[in-house]
């Protein structure tokens, strides 16, 4: 029971970041910058909540913080047509530096930020169900948001005109252009939206789980989210399943440590990356990456 709760807890920030990454990659832009977007979101959420005393302001700031990194990536990779992956990496280095710097900008020492983590919102009646209630219907708000976002993104990508345009931009931008669309603008907006959603994933860490911001607190979760959307083959439901599997592997690793079992937690931590690599290698050419991903627009 605890194990399942820990799995969901670990999967939540990954899922939000992966949903953002799907927006970006389905539009044809590799989402290597997820790490920096999450970190900026976590930072902005913690500082804004601390300064204003309002969680809502903090969540707004997380959206904005992630979007700023998204805007940077979008400008350099879409507007200037630089290599998308290297741009993402650069944005990650920048985000790690700038959040750490700004935290100490006032007097050279980091302020001690202590926030009350967001409280659980039990769903009336449903939360009282045996077994399922505490597992599914008694979570903090951002966890519900991640689950809802997963459903919403599936619907939006598959059933709306805008979603179709976004997918077409990732598959065949020339066709979008020929039919009167503006693929560069679509990509720009998709990457900025990716930043905002991934920023929310960062807010899960700082507002909902830890209650403060520390340097580099995402600790590679952005890359893990990238791996999960690959394993989930660029669909929200698939990414959610992958996030849960990765979360379970991580939770299992923590169990091993507390019980002092001989199996190695490092090998377990390797699992997500090995699985992602195996999925890519196993599928080979049939991996169905968005066809125009990584290509710059002429």
């Amino acid at each position: 029971m605890d194990f399942l709760a820990a799995t969901i807890r670990i999967a939540t920030p990954l899922l939000l970041a992966a949903l953002g990454g799907i927006l970006s990659e389905r539009a044809g832009v590799f989402a290597v910058g997820l790490e920096g977007m999450m970190l900026a979101g976590a930072f902005a959420a913690a500082v804004a909540t601390w300064a204003s005393g309002s969680d809502l302001v903090g969540i707004g700031a997380a959206l904005a913080g992630g979007a700023v990194i998204g805007l940077l990536v979008a400008l350099v990779a879409v507007r200037f047509r630089a290599d998308q992956m290297v741009t993402g990496l650069s944005a990650n280095i920048f985000a790690a530096g700038v959040t750490s710097y700004l935290l100490r900008a006032n007097g050279g020492r980091a302020p001690s930020i202590h926030l009350d983590p967001l409280a659980n919102w039990p769903v009336p009646w449903l939360a009282d169900l045996p077994v399922l209630g505490p597992l599914l219907f008694n979570h903090p708000p951002l966890t519900y948001l991640a689950a809802a976002g997963c459903v919403a993104l599936t619907w939006w990508l598959g059933r709306t005109q805008a979603g179709l345009t976004l997918r077409a931009t990732g598959e065949n931008p020339e066709a979008v252009f020929a039919s009167g669309g503006n693929p560069a603008r679509t990509r720009l907006l998709a990457v900025i939206a990716c930043g905002a959603v991934a920023g929310l994933g960062g807010a899960v860490l700082s507002l909902q789980q830890v209650g403060t911001f520390t340097d580099n607190m995402t600790g590679g979760r952005g890359y893990l989210a990238l791996a999960s959307l690959i394993v989930g083959r660029w669909t929200p439901a698939g990414a959610a399943a992958a996030c849960l599997v990765f979360g379970a592997a991580d939770a299992f690793g923590l169990r091993l440590q507390t019980f002092g079992l001989p199996a190695s937690s490092y090998v377990l931590q390797m699992a997500p990356y090995v699985i992602a690599l195996a999925v890519l290698a196993g599928l080979g050419r049939s991996a169905k990456l968005p066809a125009a991903i990584g290509q710059s627009l002429e």
Binding site: V76, D83, G97
Partner: peptide
């Protein structure tokens, strides 16, 4: 710099990240 002036040393990562981003834009076709 951190010791003498009190400016956090993480400034270096900011310079590195920005240099990379600007260099990417500068080298773009």
């Amino acid at each position: 710099m951190q010791r003498q002036v009190g400016v956090p040393s993480s400034l270096v990562a900011v310079i590195e990240g920005l240099t990379m981003l600007f260099a990417l834009a500068a080298m773009a076709r």
